[in-house]
Design a protein around this nucleic acid. Structure first.
Lengths: 187, 187, 187, 187
DNA sequence: CATGAATGAGGCTTCATTCAT
DNA sequence: AATGAATGAAGCCTCATTCAT
């Protein structure tokens, strides 16, 4: 129908727009949380509102896409921590990393609060995130970094709390992590 | 034209209406959080929307009033704990009490998350709440229930997290308190 | 809570607004059919869009209300024709009356086209309309004005056609009625 | 650069695309009427939306094209009926044929309703359709199948009604034709 | 003081059409 | 000539707040 070249070009542009939307939404959601207007996002992305809706047919879809993206980033880092198999890292390293991410992303804090306790099936990356936590705990338990009775659920709660602490600027979140890590240690 | 009686009668009616609104809002906010419609509140209170707005000129004002009320209740209980001067109670007792309250009041969870880290001046009762926490910590420190380096800010964060854990049903909040209390203990 | 008087006054005003909306919608729907914008209706009624939606929470609801109203008017007239029991009137008189109404109301033509063949339950007045047709046919059959084999369904189709003829200005609708009435006569 | 072959090839391709669009639109309009989305049509045709708009610069244009096509088909059949000069066929045969067509084509019903009474100049085929009706009536009048006073306009109305009856599934349209044909007969 | 009707700004989303490649 | 991404004007509806009685 048309040459591969022109095709690729168009598709590239379209993808660029998609990325622009994602990028803009990411920035806005990070700063203001998820109750930003769709038209704001479109404007910030430099595209028409119609384009935004072509890429993400629903506000929910846009939020989802970004949440999954960020979640996968966190998971990737966590995997690196796990693979490094550095005993001093592990759970603690993970929590500090999550803290860094959330500290720079209000929207993600909102998501994480919901995710950590949800029984319902989530997007892939968020499920992976939960899986990573579980894995980290298992290792930590073996190592004795945390008590034998500590469960993934315990850590999920701690993370949920962490997100809230950060989102509400309730204090020095590193200290929060210190305290809760101490709380999880074997007595 | 109006006898003292009728005067008093009217004032009483007005006050009753105010109470009805408060009561209704309390119930609705407790169950559904603060994003309940104002008209819903008025309906539940059995008063006109206009009356509601006369008593509380803004949605914010209504939320504030209830938050203050709830906060003062918590403070009162906390004072009792403090006065009783039961070493086994103190901070722990306070946290469990707060947990109970928040578990039954979604709106209050929302408020507490914001309150605990706010640097801005709050309503009286909420300031008192913060003061109580500070006091409890001081005592606990003296007693050795918590580490010497533990600050009121630390506990504020823990409470903020607690509120989030409860609001998002992220797990067993009593366990969350256990863990964090452990984390605050002297090593 | 308030005196009956003030109450009544308010309610009267509200009803006046409701009537204004109905009236405005009636006029606009009559002229342009049902695809008029809600804001247009509100403007024509001299009320805010919010008021319109308070009275009729949905575009559908507004159309329904007017359709029912008009249908009930038609039924009322039809009853008079039936009661008068004038042999020369009856079905013919009814059809001409319907024609007059539809000729002045595009929206109603749209409704009638749909109504006449619908198996689904309709609003009260529209059901009554169908009942009236059935009744008229029964009488006409007895009188011999129409053939023994003529059914209400036949007339419903004729009326549906009548509505289309009028809505599309396909010709002299009185002539259409003449022709179809002839077609229904006993041979 | 382009050989005659490639030229012709291209032209052929273009024509094929036009046909695909027409075919797809025909099917979709037949099933769902004219309020199908343009993008749906393009998708069904297997062409880009841009191609569709190149062939038919407006939704109206596409509808028109199909209407003309369908109309010409009807005219062709009607001519055959006319030519056959079968006295038992003629008008009746034509009406039943139109009924068949409309029963299988919602979009065409919509068109026919509008066409039959339009004073404005139409597309060629639709004008031809009107001409055929006129011709059929003239013949029928001569034969005495219909009354001397029956005009083409009368039949146009009947056909407009037929379209509405079919589109709204208001009943058995064959019966409708029976009745109206009876109505057109000389008394 | 109570009432509740009225207001209208604002948010989400759709879809016919244009345009750059 | 074909493609399909981009556009943005509308349209529907909600709800916090105001105001006339």
């Amino acid at each position: 129908m048309s040459t591969p070249q022109s095709r690729r070009k168009t598709r590239t542009d379209a993808e660029r727009n998609r990325d622009r939307v994602l990028q803009a939404a990411r920035v806005l959601f990070a700063e203001f949380g998820h109750d930003v207007q769709m038209s704001e996002v479109a404007r910030a992305a430099g595209v028409g509102i119609g384009t935004l809706y072509r890429k993400f047919p629903t506000r929910e879809a846009l939020i989802e896409a970004i949440a999954e993206h960020r979640a996968s980033e966190i998971v990737a880092t966590a995997r690196r921590l796990t693979d490094a198999d550095d005993p001093t890292q592990g759970l603690a390293g993970f929590l500090y990393h999550v803290g860094e991410v959330l500290a720079g992303d209000r929207g993600m804090s909102e998501v994480i609060e919901k995710v950590m306790g949800s029984a319902e099936p989530q997007g892939e990356a968020r499920e992976a995130l939960l899986a990573v936590v579980a894995e980290l705990i298992d290792r930590a338990r073996v190592r004795g970094t945390v008590g034998q009775d500590v469960t993934a659920g315990d850590v999920n709660m701690v993370i949920c709390g962490l997100a809230a602490v950060i989102r509400n600027a309730a204090g020095d979140w590193r200290r929060y992590i210190e305290v809760t890590l101490d709380g999880l240690r074997p007595r």
